[in-house]
Amino acid sequence: MTSLAEHDHADAAAHALAAGDAMLPRPYRVVRTRQDTRDTVTLQLEPVDGVPLKFSAGQFTMLHAFGVGEVPISISGDPTKEGLLEHTIRNVGSVSGALVAAAPGTILAVRGPFGTGWDVSDGMGGDVVFITGGIGLAPLRPAILELLANREKYNRVALLYGARTPDDILFGDELRKWADLLGIVVEVTVDSGPHSWRGRVGLVTQLIPRIAFDPANTVALVCGPEVMMRACATALRGRGVPAASIRLSMERNMKCGVGLCGHCQLRELFICVDGPVLTYERLAPLMSRWEL
């Protein structure tokens, strides 16, 4: 902290004012929508002012439905292409409900991008394991696409994906393409399936012992419910992956996205600024305590 004697609040305030208002959003227009599953929709948005939004894989925006409210939503689009802003949204509340119901032409307000990214390129020269469950595939998709743009720079790449039922599997066509054409081992499992389901039933953690990777030379990117991420981190540690090489994307209540509102604090961390992507090394002592 600046010592009290040196502190010049007027300078700091002037600097802050010049930096602009992080709470003021930009209007975006819904261009296309796609119903991914029963409760999940992908929105493609274009900025009304025409200036595209640059982001890193893993970052999120604060997405606002006028008169309803604002929620943090991870970007699910391709970070290597300048184009439409893409969000894959699950209908779980009033704001997300309004967002998935937004028809083409609807104006939404966007702030961001905010937060830390996956930094998947740290895995170049080694193996990369993506592990995800449920809607967690959406925040990982930009990292997968970033990797695929330079597939030859990575060794073995695996995507382990758990969904509730076969009907809840996201991006099914893309999963097949990644597996068949792009050299990714894609393993999918569901919590339970109908009689007609010919695939695997079980927990995504059970896939971890089944795939080949070099634990000392692997970056593992994990995104899903906290319980799932903890179980995956434990299984990865069990295979010898260092805690510092395991990255998780944390979810917390967020009202500002820029470290001001205080809602997303996890002990000393502001998840919106220090995260959402953090190493298991950093998170392990915090995730194992109830209601922290």
């Binding site: 029963r38 469950g133 449920g134 509730r164 799932m228």
Partner: peptide, 13 residues
Amino acid sequence: AARLRLIDMYGSS
């Protein structure tokens, strides 16, 4: 695995 699946962690909407 069965216990974790029991909590429906991916959540139903």
